[in-house]
Amino acid sequence: MTNPQMVMYEEEFNQIQTIVDRVVREANAQVVFIIDKNGQLIAAAGETDQLDTTSLASLTAGNIAATGGIAKLLRENEFSTQFHEGERANIHIQLVGNRVILVVIFDNKTSLGLVRLRVKKASEELNSIFEALLSKVQDPQQSTPFAEITDDDIDNLFND
């Protein structure tokens, strides 16, 4: 298939979570999260309790996909940054390595300039983590836990 499967291991997750936590702190943001381009939430930090992160992830991915479609029509490779300004909340969306999306939600306690700065640094770090993760996933030595699943396991899931 064209897209390799996304797998998250503890080691890489911890590295990613450290970065996301740091961006919340250093950018003075309300919420920071990372999703893959298909809308799956990978990591989140900050005031996530009040947020429907699953919906946000799916809509952000849809947004990035639509913007990517527009870019293609304009023969641009990608519009990798989006910023939406609201009355109370602002959202900064950054495509990282054309693979994952870094989303920062912030209010007027911070500035767009600071958010941009922190996002730029985090993007570079995240990019190398995901590169490493990808090569790990593609390693044929890595087995999937699902190889051991039996047909009965699957059937049992659907027994009401």
Binding site: N3, Q5, V7
Partner: peptide, 8 residues
């Protein structure tokens, strides 16, 4: 593309 998260 499914997403497998070993942590959660």
């Amino acid at each position: 593309m499914s997403f497998i998260n070993y942590l959660s």
